[in-house]
């Protein structure tokens, strides 16, 4: 057969063969393969996109968290400050009250002690007087038990009177 003159039979077979090949491949090979490829590419793209969205959300969440933490910290500081202030106030107030109370108590105690002391002194005075009297009485009774002694006393007293 000739090199550069196309054979009619081969052309006909080639047209039939290639048409069948094209038809079968288009229907049963390229359609599933291309659609599968497209689907996979789409799913990969979607996955990447959702990962990006998730990452952004994460970043937002993190920023929000940080903001909340910062706010919480500020609030805590404020609360602490207020609490310290209040505590100080309370202590101060308590101190004042306690001092006043203490002073009052001290005063009352002092007064009571004074009163007690006076009373005790009075009592002591009365006691002492009574005791003195009874001692004197007892002494007198003892010393003046006989006449000689009475006379001696009288003499003595007279003597005293004399010398005075």
């Amino acid at each position: 057969m000739d090199l550069i003159i196309p054979g009619s039979g081969l052309i006909i077979w080639q047209i039939i063969g290639f048409s069948i090949l094209l038809f079968i491949l288009a229907k049963f090979a390229w359609k599933p393969i291309l659609s599968a490829l497209e689907e996979r590419e789409k799913s990969i793209e979607d996955a990447l996109k959702s990962a990006e969205i998730a990452r952004n959300e994460m970043a937002n969440l993190k920023a929000e968290n940080e903001k909340i933490i910062l706010e919480a910290k500020l609030e805590r500081d404020e609360m602490l400050l207020k609490a310290t202030e209040t505590a100080r106030q309370v202590v101060e107030d308590a101190k004042g009250v306690a001092q006043a109370e203490g002073a009052k108590l001290l005063e009352a105690a002092k007064k009571a002690i004074e009163t007690e002391k006076q009373a005790a002194l009075e009592d002591v005075k009365v006691q002492v007087a009574a005791l003195s009297l009874s001692i004197a009485e007892k002494v007198l009774r003892k010393t003046l038990a006989d006449d000689a002694k009475q006379k001696e006393l009288v003499d003595e007293l007279i003597n005293e009177i004399k010398f005075n």
Binding site: M1, S8, G9, L10, I12, W13, G17, F18, L21
Partner: peptide
Amino acid sequence: IDLSITKNVAMLFIVI
């Protein structure tokens, strides 16, 4: 018309 299965037609079938 020569519709023979020549060497190239047979090859065509094998390739397909």
